[in-house]
């Protein structure tokens, strides 16, 4: 049985690197990433799982890191936006003007990236379902839809 009864040093695998961090068992993954590892790409927007700005990938699936204990992430592969290097979706976002203020962008990128990896050819309903997990307040979403469709259709690599 894994037990973490007090503030302890643990190992986290983030963006394919091992990190040692000192955490409380009650610490939230979002803040461990931001404050201890300096990975500020995941953004707090609601602290309640409603906006998706803090989305990271855990073993390839999107997770709202504001609703995950850091302790839960031990032994898992975490990917943050800093771990995306020239992913097609990043290029597509720029080409399609899929962001304005940019605050929601990393969360959207992570959802799109995971979607493209898991469902290379999804029907529209699946695209809608995945991307409805996030909120963008600047764009009309149409631009974000165009960006993910460019990636899925292979016209943005």
């Amino acid at each position: 049985m894994f037990a973490l009864s007090k503030r302890s040093l643990i190992k986290l695998n983030v963006n394919q690197e091992e990190y040692e961090v000192f955490i409380r068992p009650s610490d939230i993954l979002l803040f461990t990433l931001r404050e201890q590892l300096g990975l500020t790409g995941a953004k707090p927007g609601c602290y309640n799982g409603d906006c998706g700005a803090c989305t990271v990938l855990v073993d390839g699936l999107p997770v709202k890191s504001c609703l995950m204990l850091t302790a839960e992430a031990i032994g898992k592969q975490i990917t943050t936006v800093e771990g995306l290097k020239d992913a097609p979706i990043q290029k597509a976002f720029i080409e399609q003007f899929a962001f304005q203020c940019g605050y929601c962008t990393s969360g959207f990128l992570m959802v799109c990236h995971a979607l493209a990896n898991r469902h290379p050819n999804p029907p529209d309903i699946v695209i809608d379902e995945w991307l409805q997990s996030n909120i963008c307040r600047c764009t009309s979403y149409e631009e974000i839809g165009n960006a993910i469709r460019k990636v899925l259709s292979g016209t943005c690599k």
């Binding site: 695209i127 996030n134 909120i135 149409e142």
Partner: peptide
């Protein structure tokens, strides 16, 4: 007072612009 109950537009609900 939260985005659970204060609703804004989401992806997939928008019209053709």
């Amino acid at each position: 007072t939260s985005l659970r109950t204060y609703k804004v537009m989401h992806f997939g609900e928008t019209p053709q612009y």
